[in-house]
């Protein structure tokens, strides 16, 4: 009778775990890195894009692992979505709305990620110019206000799904068992949601309005910023 290692149970647990690590952890890192867009093209291309490429050993393996984790979490998430019959029109409770939003954001975020990975990651492999200057590529995209709308939906969906997923994981793994614990964790997860969303919006803002003098691609190279000229002098001596 003790059919203990049940595939269904383990699949659900792995689904939950994948959502936290590596997918959720990556989202936090990703939003943080991209919020540095505010420092301009040079900083972004050299310290963020190149920085990660240099600092990260086995980048291909890391990226493939991440892609597999996102796909596994997303595809099994579709199975879970398929089993739900939302009833928010009849039962107007906070947790019921969040239950519904968790499913809605799973779909919007999954679709967004596929599109987002194509035009920011796969494009880098296809187009040399994008590979050379991802910052300008992003700026060109953001010139279209509809792209910004899509990014806002993508960011809010992803941060909500992660923050609410944290709240859910607290319950399903048995950390927050009682109503009071769940109220406290709801407040904490709400704060996580606001913080991550702010960081995410800051990166859009950064691409639109980088610090003065670096708002045009290659501009810093022409007039040179103090750090760059210092380095040049240092090299020439």
């Amino acid at each position: 009778m003790a059919d203990s290692l049940n595939a269904h149970f383990l699949t659900r647990k792995i689904h939950s775990l994948l959502g936290l690590v590596p997918v959720g952890a990556f989202l936090v890192f990703h939003l943080w890195e991209n919020s540095q867009a505010r420092f301009g093209a040079e900083h972004f291309n050299e310290h963020v894009v190149e920085g990660i490429a240099v600092a990260l050993n086995y980048k291909v393996i890391v990226e493939l692992t991440l892609a597999c984790a996102i796909l596994a979490h997303g595809i099994y998430g579709l199975v879970i979505w398929w089993q739900s019959k939302p009833n928010i029109t009849q039962y107007h409770y906070g947790a019921n709305y969040r239950y519904y939003l968790q499913r809605v954001t799973s779909l919007t975020t999954f679709a967004f990620i596929i599109w987002h990975v194509y035009h920011t990651r796969i494009m880098v492999e296809l187009d040399e110019e994008v590979a050379r200057d991802l910052f300008t590529h992003m700026q060109r995209l953001y010139a279209d206000p509809w792209i910004i709308v899509l990014y806002v939906i993508g960011i809010v969906g992803a941060t909500f799904h992660l923050a609410n997923g944290l709240w859910l994981a607290g319950i399903t793994w048995g950390v927050t068992t009682h109503p009071r614990a769940q109220r406290i964790s709801a407040a904490a997860c709400g704060a996580v949601f606001l913080l991550l969303t702010t960081i995410g919006f800051h990166s859009i803002y950064g691409f639109k309005y980088p610090y003065e003098g670096e708002d045009q691609p290659g501009h810093a190279d022409v007039i040179g910023d103090p750090t760059a000229s210092d380095l040049d002098q240092h090299r020439s001596t």
Binding site: H8, Y93, G174
Partner: peptide, 29 residues
């Protein structure tokens, strides 16, 4: 694991049974 934590159950229970506490407790168990 098929529970989605919408927590409507605890709201509509005519006997005010703390069903979500049971679900949380069973999560731990």
């Amino acid at each position: 694991t098929d529970c989605g934590n919408a927590q409507n159950c605890v709201q509509v229970c005519p006997k005010n049974i703390p069903l979500t506490t049971a679900i949380g407790g069973l999560g731990r168990q």
